[in-house]
């Protein structure tokens, strides 16, 4: 029964994501974002799932692999950061319309794209947890949410700082902004739910349920806010939106920045995962101590 429910859920999830991708592709260029997202997820999710399964069978080798991965990722990320910085500050041309503040995009856009990754990861690993009851899945969704909070907070902060000189306001109830804000609130709710759960096991189960429902909802929130805003006459279309193409250097810099933040995401996620392992070990030892008493 449990397996059947999980499989059904899996299909619901896949169908909803496919639908949302098609919907998003039909609407403006936002589809590019979701499409990139799906690609990254496909790339990340399969080794991630293998890793989780592996961690259960061969804990020692898993630990070694995690250590190695972190050690490899850290210097690469550092070098990429320096590369991004030098590109953004020294190499890329200044935008004709937006001026210097356009350079914020090289931080903001990768951050925003990476903070859309956790909903996918969380829904996937929550289904995995409810189905297999493997601690590894739970650790993955908790880590993804915590890293998601970090990325979403930064997306909101950097976006706001960009908006102040450009739009003249810190915040606008634009569909994208609203979606990210709601997403952020849902992540915080997830973390609070875990903090207030009566037992770790219940916390894991409740948050898995919340993870699935919340991820589906984040797509619906986006659709609702898009529809809602099209009711407003002041639908904003950029004057430069139709004309001009992306300068080659800007494109390269954006790609490099994107790679940097993807690596950073992976690194922070791995760090959080290994921390979670230690936390679990402490819980096990405490339980043993209780028994010995």
């Amino acid at each position: 029964m449990r397996a059947a429910a999980a499989v059904t859920l899996g299909w619901v999830w896949v169908a909803l994501n496919a639908l949302s991708a098609i919907y998003a592709l039909s609407k403006t260029g936002l589809g590019v974002m979701w499409f990139a997202e799906l690609l990254v997820v496909a790339l990340l999710a399969s080794p991630g799932a293998l890793l989780v399964a592996w961690g259960r069978r061969r804990p020692q080798r898993y630990e070694e692999f995690m250590q190695l991965a972190k050690q490899v990722l850290l210097p690469i990320t550092g070098v990429m950061m320096l590369l991004t910085l030098s590109m953004v500050f020294l190499w890329v041309p200044t935008d004709a319309n937006l001026g210097v503040s356009q350079r914020i995009f090289y931080f903001h856009v990768p951050l925003a794209i990476m903070s859309l990754l956790p909903p996918f990861l969380v829904s996937l690993s929550s289904i995995g947890y409810l189905w297999r009851r493997n601690e590894g899945w739970d650790a993955l969704s908790l880590s993804a949410v915590e890293v998601g909070v970090l990325f979403t907070t930064l997306t909101l902060a950097t976006g706001s700082i960009w908006a102040r000189p450009t739009w003249g306001v810190w915040w606008r109830w634009d569909p994208m902004l609203t979606t990210f804000f709601i997403l952020w609130l849902m992540y915080l709710g997830y973390l609070l739910l875990r903090a207030y759960a009566p037992s770790p096991d219940q916390g894991a189960r409740y948050s898995a349920v919340l993870g699935i429902v919340g991820s589906v909802n984040s797509v619906i929130v986006y659709m609702a806010t898009v529809w809602w805003n099209t009711q407003h006459p002041e639908k904003v279309v950029g004057p430069a939106a139709e004309a001009g193409s992306l300068d080659a250097r800007m494109g390269v810099a954006l790609l490099v920045a994107f790679a940097t933040f993807a690596l950073l995401f992976a690194y922070v996620l791995l760090e959080r995962l290994s921390l979670r392992r230690d936390e679990a070990q402490v819980e096990v030892l405490r339980a043993q101590l209780e028994e010995a008493r």
């Binding site: 260029g29 937006l98 450009t166």
Partner: peptide, 13 residues
């Protein structure tokens, strides 16, 4: 040169 043509409406405000 403009990033505004980057295909996302919220960047192209």
């Amino acid at each position: 040169v403009s990033l505004q043509s980057w295909p996302d409406h919220h960047l192209a405000l």
